[in-house]
Computed example of a mutant assay.
Amino acid sequence: MLNIIAHDNIVELNLARPPVNALNLELLDALCTAHDRAIADGARGIVLSGAQGMFSAGVDVPALLGLDRAGVMTFWRAFFATCARLARSPVPVVAAITGHSPAGGAVLSLFCDYRVMANGPYRIGLNEVQVGLSVPECIQLALRRVVGAYRAERLLIAGAMIESEQALAYGFVDELTAVDQVVPRALHWLGELLALPSRAMLTTRTTARADIGAAFADVDALPLDEFVDGFFHPQTQAVLQALVARLKSKG
C-alpha cells in the first residue's frame, strides 16, 4: 500500500495501492504514520510519489459510498489530517507526480513545497465540482497560493482537468520531465535545497508557508460537518453513484 524508500537523508513515500492508488482510510493513515516516523528518524526531506502513469486517482469513491455518516466523517477527517501533515511538515516535501493526478491526488500535491510532473498526456486538476463535490476554502487557499486567485477561480469552478504542459504554464506544477525521471528530478531539487544553510532555509520556509500552516493548525476546527453534509446531498450522491456505475461498466 505504501513503499518507504530511503535516499540518504531523504525518504520517499511511494503510493502503492494498485491499480490507481485510490485514497482510502488505510492509505491515508499509512501516509501520516510514515511521514511522522520519517521525521522522528531524522529525515531532512520527503518525496511523495506514485506509479508511472498514475500518481493517484484521488479518493476511493466506491468504498466511500458504502459508508455511513460516521464512516464518511472518519475518512474525510483523515484526508484533511493528511493535508495538514504536508502543509505543516517541518521538512520540505516534493510531490513526484508520476502521471495522472485528479481530485484528491492533485490536492495532496498542492500542500507540498514543489511539484515535478511527468511530461506527456497526463492530466491534473481539482475536478471535484464535476463529480458533485464542493471545494472547501482550505483547499481553495492551497490552489490560490500556487496559481493565483483568478486562475484558481476558473479552474475550481469548472472542475478543470489540464494536461501537463498547461499545468506548467499555469504554475500548477514547477517542472516537467520524462515519466521515469520524475522521482530523480524531485530528489535533485530537494538535494539542492537541503545543501543551503539549514537554519536560514527552514526559518524562511516556515514564514513563507505560514498561511497554509495556519489554515491547517487544527483539523477539528475545519468545517468537516458542513463538508460531509454536502457529500450526502441528494444531487452529490446521484452524481457519485453514476460515476461509480460508469467505472464498474468499464471494469
Rank of each mutant, 00 (worst) to 15 (best):
211 D>Y: 01
107 V>F: 05
169 A>Y: 00
171 G>W: 05
104 G>Y: 02
168 L>C: 07
181 Q>K: 13
101 S>Q: 08
104 G>W: 02
200 A>Y: 11
172 F>R: 09
159 G>M: 12
194 L>C: 10
128 E>Y: 15
157 I>Y: 01
185 R>G: 00
211 D>H: 14
109 S>P: 07
186 A>G: 05
135 V>I: 15
114 Y>E: 13
117 M>K: 01
114 Y>I: 06
210 A>G: 02
122 Y>I: 04
140 Q>N: 13
169 A>N: 08
130 Q>N: 15
117 M>E: 00
198 S>I: 07
96 A>G: 01
162 I>D: 09
123 R>E: 12
196 L>W: 07
126 L>H: 03
91 V>F: 00
141 L>E: 08
134 S>L: 11
126 L>D: 06
142 A>K: 05
95 A>T: 04
120 G>L: 08
145 R>T: 13
123 R>N: 13
161 M>S: 14
99 G>V: 10
97 I>C: 05
142 A>G: 04
165 E>D: 15
198 S>V: 11
126 L>Y: 06
124 I>N: 00
154 R>L: 15
155 L>R: 10
158 A>G: 12
184 P>R: 12
185 R>E: 04
116 V>N: 01
96 A>W: 00
162 I>P: 00
111 F>A: 10
193 L>W: 11
198 S>Q: 15
117 M>W: 07
